[in-house]
Lab assay of single mutants.
Amino acid sequence: MDEEYDVIVLGTGLTECILSGIMSVNGKKVLHMDRNPYYGGESSSITPLEELYKRFQLLEGPPESMGRGRDWNVDLIPKFLMANGQLVKMLLYTEVTRYLDFKVVEGSFVYKGGKIYKVPSTETEALASNLMGMFEKRRFRKFLVFVANFDENDPKTFEGVDPQTTSMRDVYRKFDLGQDVIDFTGHALALYRTDDYLDQPCLETVNRIKLYSESLARYGKSPYLYPLYGLGELPQGFARLSAIYGGTYMLNKPVDDIIMENGKVVGVKSEGEVARCKQLICDPSYIPDRVRKAGQVIRIICILSHPIKNTNDANSCQIIIPQNQVNRKSDIYVCMISYAHNVAAQGKYIAIASTTVETTDPEKEVEPALELLEPIDQKFVAISDLYEPIDDGCESQVFCSCSYDATTHFETTCNDIKDIYKRMAGTAFDFENMKRKQNDVFGEAEQ
């Protein structure tokens, strides 16, 4: 370990593993360490099931009705991949897709007046949907046509809207959309967690709705994908990429100290040895004095023996409960997957309800979601602090990732990755940087 590296990475969460992969592909010498004996950090999948019970201090362990412990891979952080989103792009560019198998999530649902409705995925579904009345549908269709044709580089498509100054509230007004449709559009399509976006320039919202539609167009059922064997497969896929390009991995490796000289990182000390480096990437748990708390998320993992009611017996789905429907500031989400994804025993389902904490009784906040899941065989409640770095790391060369937020997709995580890359490399992130180099010394032969 007593060696000189360009970059040392602490923690094998998804953000850290993707950055480690990119740095290795770009010719950097990388050492990647984790104090845990497993990959994934906060974003790991726990197996066998006995391990999950232990982690949540349920000492009696799983009953026999849960089947074989080894058949379970339970995500600690519930997220899906947008089919046309940035993480899929990263997987394709790096060819990490060859280590993973994905399934399309069967449906996306939205909560309205105590019931759940399928988010329409085709024009026919939209016309048949009970989510809105006849005239509302016509106006909504006009709005969707506007979004589909919108091109930020072609003012002819703006229809009198200025993407940089017109607020989204004004765009909704222009198409005369009612409150329910606005809730549905902002939260189930643009996937905002709160209503803060309404008074911001509309460009980002329009682009988010386009991303949803384009992702949906790829597979038809929903815009989301999920990897077989759980999300823990993602960091491992990128760790393989890093290793192929010469990255060194050490799990179960305690970090005793991060060594600084004149305010700059110069190395990491572990078990009496020092590895030197020019730059350091880590998750917040490794540098508690360089991060601040930015809120909390509650996630309740529920094991069920039945599909969720009114989802047409889907073996995977997402449910969004827009905040307006339950008098909150932030949406509540449910991600459900099952034995069909090799993450649970035969006939079992895993539904994870999550939201940003707003009160001193977080469990009560998630109740509307839990009511949709009854009866629940077993619950595991996790309340996590969200951390963000206190500075950009440019001076110390210590670059810290943000905690995983309450969103049900990876777009915010990818933004964090691109942002850290830019601060480390001094140049904007470009997907081309992730391409495997042809015929290089570490390149794998085609399968």
Results as ranks from 00 to 15, higher is better:
S316N: 10
K364E: 11
K142N: 08
G232R: 05
R98L: 07
N26Q: 08
R193P: 10
F135L: 11
R290P: 06
G27C: 10
L191T: 11
M90H: 13
P322T: 00
V206C: 08
L59I: 13
G85W: 01
S401R: 04
D196H: 13
T360L: 15
C317I: 07
T359L: 05
S316H: 00
L91W: 05
V357Q: 15
P284V: 15
K89V: 05
Y39A: 02
K142F: 01
R169L: 10
T94M: 15
R276P: 10
F143A: 04
Q57Y: 06
R173T: 08
T194M: 15
N26G: 02
D195G: 06
L131I: 05
L59M: 05
P235F: 15
P155H: 00
D392G: 11
I209S: 01
L76T: 09
R35M: 08
Y229F: 10
I352W: 08
G11M: 11
V74Y: 00
K329T: 07
V25I: 08
L304K: 01
T248L: 11
N207D: 06
T194Y: 15
V291M: 05
K379R: 10
K210W: 04
Q447K: 00
L251I: 14
K112H: 04
S270V: 11
A239L: 13
G186R: 02
S401C: 11
R70N: 04
Q318K: 00
F429D: 02
I337D: 10
P155F: 00
E395D: 05
I350V: 12
K309T: 10
A128D: 00
G443D: 14
A217V: 08
G160R: 11
I350A: 02
Q86E: 13
Y224V: 04
T359H: 14
Y93W: 13
A190T: 07
N262S: 11
S45W: 09
G347C: 08
F135S: 08
Y404C: 10
I376N: 00
R55S: 06
V147D: 13
P163I: 11
T248R: 11
I8L: 05
V366P: 11
N310Y: 11
E123G: 10
T248A: 06
R193G: 12
L372H: 08
E363N: 04
S43D: 02
V297R: 03
S330I: 06
H32K: 03
M134I: 08
I337V: 09
F380L: 11
E152L: 14
F109H: 15
T12D: 14
V206Y: 06
G113S: 15
V110R: 08
E444Y: 01
S20W: 05
C400G: 12
T427K: 04
F431C: 01
D377C: 07
I244L: 13
I417F: 10
Q447L: 01
M260T: 06
F143G: 02
G67S: 07
V343E: 01
K418N: 10
E374P: 00
Q296S: 01
H341F: 15
F429I: 06
M336N: 14
I116V: 09
G263I: 14
Y99N: 00
S167I: 05
Y333S: 13
D361V: 12
Y111K: 14
K278Q: 07
K278H: 15
S121T: 11
N312Y: 13
V297S: 15
N130D: 08
V265H: 10
D257E: 00
D361N: 09
L127S: 05
S45T: 14
D75S: 14
S242I: 01
K115S: 13
D313G: 11
E371D: 06
I281T: 04
G178A: 07
K364N: 06
P62H: 00
V74S: 02
L372A: 09
D6E: 05
K309N: 05
L19F: 14
T194S: 06
Q164P: 12
K422S: 15
R141T: 11
V7L: 11
S129Y: 00
V104E: 08
D257W: 08
D75E: 03
L372N: 02
D101V: 06
I301T: 11
A340G: 12
V268L: 06
D283Q: 03
R173C: 14
I8R: 03
D2Q: 07
K278G: 15
G85M: 11
G11S: 05
E233R: 11
C394N: 13
L373P: 07
Y212Q: 00
T360R: 03
G133D: 05
A351N: 15
P120H: 13
I259A: 06
G13C: 03
K264L: 06
N207C: 15
Y349L: 13
K221L: 12
S24T: 07
K29N: 08
T412V: 08
I46F: 06
V381N: 00
L14A: 14
V398I: 14
G263R: 09
